[in-house]
Amino acid sequence: MDKNLLGTNIVTQIGIIVKDIEKASQAFADFFGVEKPKWNWTDGYDKSHAEFNGKPSDARAKLAFFDMGQVQIELIEPDENISTWREFLDKHGEGVHHIAFQVKDMDEKIEALEKNGMPLVQKGDYEGGRYAYIDTFSKLKVIIELLENF
């Protein structure tokens, strides 16, 4: 395997799949002694251009974020549409879904990862950037998310 396929080793986010974002975000807020963040919906396909397994996806999710210094905790409650989030919840239940890294040249990173047996599962845009989930589960026991801000 090539060395440092991401060009970084700094974790920026841990994503956790939950069934009930209100309950989960309140539990995290209570645990950390902070105010419960407001959750928001991911954009629909018209803005996100989301793809799951290479096909356009209408999947959306409720997201809540806790900024914890260097690492952000992201809570994700998926809707019923097929996505990496829904698939994870259906197969594994609630739990850690991904570890995210901020990268440059995302397309180059995706290509390098795919060449090393780690395929792209889902990608999309968000205001100010884009994301990609890479199936590293068989090797790393967790999915890797690439984040590229513009």
Results as ranks from 00 to 15, higher is better:
2 D>H: 11
3 K>Q: 14
5 L>M: 12
8 T>H: 03
8 T>S: 05
10 I>T: 13
13 Q>W: 12
17 I>M: 01
17 I>H: 00
19 K>R: 13
19 K>M: 01
22 E>H: 07
23 K>C: 03
23 K>H: 07
23 K>A: 04
24 A>T: 04
26 Q>Y: 13
26 Q>D: 14
28 F>Q: 03
28 F>C: 05
31 F>P: 08
32 F>Y: 15
33 G>L: 06
36 K>T: 11
37 P>K: 08
38 K>N: 12
39 W>C: 06
40 N>C: 09
42 T>E: 04
42 T>P: 03
43 D>H: 12
44 G>A: 15
45 Y>N: 06
46 D>P: 04
51 E>R: 15
53 N>E: 12
55 K>S: 14
55 K>Q: 15
56 P>T: 10
56 P>E: 09
59 A>I: 05
60 R>P: 03
61 A>G: 02
63 L>W: 07
67 D>V: 12
69 G>E: 13
70 Q>W: 12
72 Q>F: 08
75 L>T: 00
77 E>M: 03
78 P>G: 02
82 I>P: 05
84 T>N: 07
86 R>P: 01
87 E>K: 10
88 F>A: 02
89 L>C: 02
91 K>P: 04
94 E>V: 00
94 E>K: 00
95 G>A: 08
95 G>F: 02
95 G>N: 05
97 H>A: 04
101 F>K: 07
102 Q>C: 12
103 V>H: 01
110 I>N: 06
110 I>D: 04
113 L>Q: 02
115 K>W: 09
115 K>D: 09
116 N>L: 12
116 N>F: 12
118 M>I: 10
119 P>G: 07
119 P>Y: 06
122 Q>F: 04
126 Y>K: 11
134 I>L: 10
139 K>F: 11
140 L>F: 14
140 L>E: 11
142 V>A: 07
145 E>T: 09
147 L>N: 15
148 E>N: 12
149 N>I: 10
150 F>I: 13
